[in-house]
Design a protein around this nucleic acid. Structure first.
Length: 118
DNA sequence: AACGTGACTTAGT
DNA sequence: CACTAAGCCACGT
């Protein structure tokens, strides 16, 4: 996949919404693509959230993309970082233990915007 | 325009 | 518990 060369207005808004939520994830906590999709109204699938994350590195403001993982606590997006280990290292710097691409104690690390932001 | 593919998820077998 | 199918939606070929 790739991000549009010339994003439409709607696409830019969508990217911004997703990035905005991701920026609200506290240090040392993680969330999932599905949770973000649900928080934004589920008007698009979790896949679209993942798609929006590809534009994270081009965003004007910093987006902690390493805090977004799949619903099983797996670092499915690690290959989109500068290096294959960047995502895990960023998480461990925040105190999140990762073993074999799996976030340990995921259930208590999970941060659901739909709940936390009410 | 059909088809494959993907930072996903849920339901069915 | 694992594996598959299907829903999802945008994009490149």
């Amino acid at each position: 996949m790739s991000i549009p060369r010339n994003p439409t207005e709607q696409q830019r808004n969508f990217f911004q919404e997703v990035h905005e939520v991701v920026r609200l994830v506290p240090q040392g906590r993680v969330t999932t693509y599905g949770a973000i999709a649900h928080y934004l109204g589920a008007r698009h699938g979790a896949r679209m959230v993942g798609w929006a994350m590809m534009a994270a590195h081009t965003a004007n403001e910093y987006v902690p993309a390493h805090r977004v993982i799949n619903r099983n606590g797996l670092l499915t997006g690690k290959h989109h970082f500068a290096t294959p280990t960047a995502m895990q290292e960023a998480l461990e710097t925040e105190g999140v233990t990762v073993v074999e691409d799996q976030v340990q104690d995921f259930k208590t690390r999970f941060w659901d915007p739909a709940v936390e932001l009410e």
